[in-house]
């Protein structure tokens, strides 16, 4: 099963490689990973999306906890939480499809952040389903490339584990 794991880690050099090394060394996969600062500049947060059976997920959580630079591990999958990801999609539509691209962007509450003679770059934020949906819809219009940030997640206030 898929799990979104959120970490608080010391903001030190080498921490990312310790975490990446744990996953590669033990053969766990990382579907996405994003890193950022927190309010406390000495602490960073990471969101990792990974998958595995219950035993593997338990090991991943424990192994992450065991790393000395990891302050806290929260398996978001067990909590009510909000997940978001952002994607930038560069589309090169034919003349007759340009309006459709703009319409889709609007339906998805996206924005056009760059345009050229032949391309639009659309910015979309949402959960995974929404991101996948817009990519599917834009594909026939001619996607040149897209960039995804990877997921970030935050627990809903007042929720308990379980």
């Amino acid at each position: 099963m898929r799990h979104t794991i959120s970490l608080l880690v010391e903001n030190k050099f080498g921490v990312l490689s310790r975490i990446a090394g744990l996953f590669s060394g033990r053969g766990y996969n990382i579907e996405s990973l994003s890193v950022g600062e927190t309010i406390d500049p000495q602490i960073s947060t990471m969101t990792i999306v990974t998958s595995g059976d219950d035993q593997i997920i338990e090991q991943i959580n424990k192994q992450l906890n065991k790393l000395i630079d990891v302050i806290k591990v929260i398996d978001m999958t067990e909590l009510a939480h909000v997940e978001r990801e952002m994607v930038l999609i560069k589309v090169a539509p034919k003349q007759e499809n340009k309006a459709e691209v703009l319409r889709l962007a609007e339906i998805f509450r996206g924005r056009i952040v760059d345009s050229s003679q032949h391309t639009y770059t659309v910015e979309i934020t949402g959960d995974e389903k929404k991101i996948e949906a817009i990519i599917e819809l834009l594909k026939p219009m001619g996607i040149k490339e897209f960039m995804r940030t990877g997921k970030i997640a935050i627990a809903r206030e007042g929720t308990k584990k379980g």
Binding site: Q59, K62, N65, K66
Partner: peptide, 8 residues
């Protein structure tokens, strides 16, 4: 003492 040893 090492939780990762348990149920590995």
């Amino acid at each position: 003492i090492d939780p990762t040893s348990i149920r590995k």
